[in-house]
Design a protein around this nucleic acid. Structure first.
Lengths: 246, 246
DNA sequence: CGATATCTTGAGGAATCTCAATACTAGTGG
DNA sequence: CCACTAGTATTGAGATTCCTCAAGATATCG
């Protein structure tokens, strides 16, 4: 069987004639599809496929032909680049509603791997390119997504180049907390589906330093480690402060 | 007098009725204007202004209303973000042909400052937005620029998060060398108009470490410091190798 | 419930930073 | 045209953060 299921719906919803599913999409307001009109929506769902991926599996690899773009319907994905000796930089963690697959040339410049079980909406690039010519609004939406990612990347450069380990962790928790707000989740409880090694590779640290920083924040009473993958922010104000000068 | 000169040409060229100047633009193939057709070109030059900036002066500041986008006709610009305590991360160095001013909301998320005397083509945002609706090709061009910047930002994250001081310097020289090629300059002679402090804030290092790394590369025979701001690459192969594992 | 991976903690080391002194460069005015 | 000054770059010595290596604790999954 093909890895792509052309007929299934956006996420785990009703299978229909191919345009209703997106109406039921729980994360639509966050995705590529946000603020699109009926015709764009229908065109998009017309070329859309869905793809399910198990935790640890690859969505695509650096260097691979960039044949498609994706929207995450559920689950978490990490993007990363590798150096020849295996050192790794994670350039982003993506969650439900997030978009991935932008490429400059014909090939992806980074790898994408599922952190948890993931459901994706897949848009073949050639067809999406055609739609972009047809619907300027879609083109604009993609431009806006790219601009947002660029701004986030610049924040991350500041973090990587100039922040201390503690500040990095506080910034990371702050970003996730704010992302919870956008998703109508409580900003105090942070879910960390990724490993400490992933966090380390995202923040330019080692797992040991990540672990020590968490412990230190716990000791200072700013956070509580509910379990390894769930953190309660006890003092968001103080965390925000320590993210920039702590 | 207004800082903007609506009538002058793109760069230091003939003043005309407002559409010929771009025809003479020496860096057009590198800019926003590249691969645009006559009507787009004319529309762009119609809303274009030029702006001259002295070394050390500001193009715009972080937080300022994002009223315009710019293309550099000559000179060098640095983009940077600051932390409250003054720590600085330079997110990019821009040269003739490069584009700046992309913003997510209504405000710039970073500052832009001239490193040398700079000439800019200025495009008011509101008018450019209108043109984007009118000319999908222009929209597409901006999307492509944003995508390219994003890819560069991801490379820089890898550099900042995972490379050693020596690797950072070698990577930096490599990028500039390749940028010389695009501009039809010799790839062996690198001009560094920025200070060591700027380089340090770009690479997540201190001036002292930048200086020591240069000295070390000189001692290894990979480069020659012709003067403080001009470097000869003696062994591009070796530099490229050391940019990723050395 | 046990095996394995992940996480935490500890001790020592290394790369880079900080602080300080010296050398160089570029621009200024005599 | 040269000397002077202020900024910039280099070099040195010691401090510090974070990393490496190693062991023990905890969580996860079949």
């Amino acid at each position: 069987m093909s890895p792509y299921d052309e007929s299934s719906s956006c996420g785990a919803f009703l299978k229909t004639d191919g345009q209703a599913p997106c109406d039921a999409c729980p994360v639509r307001s966050l995705t590529l599809c946000s603020s699109l009109e009926r015709p764009e929506m229908d065109a998009l769902s017309g070329i859309m496929q869905t793809r399910d991926i198990k935790a640890g599996e690859t969505v695509f690899d650096e260097g691979e032909a960039a044949n498609a773009l994706y929207n995450i319907t559920s689950g978490a994905v990490k993007l990363y680049k590798l150096l020849p000796d295996g050192r790794r930089q994670i350039t982003g963690f993506l969650f439900a509603g997030d978009f991935l697959g932008l490429a400059v040339g014909d090939h992806y410049a980074y790898s994408a791997e599922a952190i948890s079980k993931v459901t994706l909406c897949r848009f073949p690039r050639i067809q999406l390119d055609r739609l972009m010519d047809q619907y300027p609004k879609l083109q604009r939406r993609l431009f806006s997504i790219a601009s947002n990612e660029l701004a986030a990347a610049q924040d991350q450069m500041l973090l990587l180049g100039r922040k201390t380990a503690r500040e990095k962790i506080c910034s990371f928790l702050g970003v996730l907390s704010r992302s919870n707000l956008r998703r109508n989740l409580t900003p105090e409880i942070i879910h960390l589906p990724m490993s400490r090694a992933d966090i380390a590779d995202y923040l330019g640290l080692t797992t040991e330093t990540v672990s020590r920083s968490f412990t230190q924040l716990k000791t200072s009473g700013l956070i509580r480690l509910m379990d390894g993958h769930r953190v309660k922010l006890e003092d968001i104000e103080a965390l925000a402060h320590d993210a920039e000068s702590g």
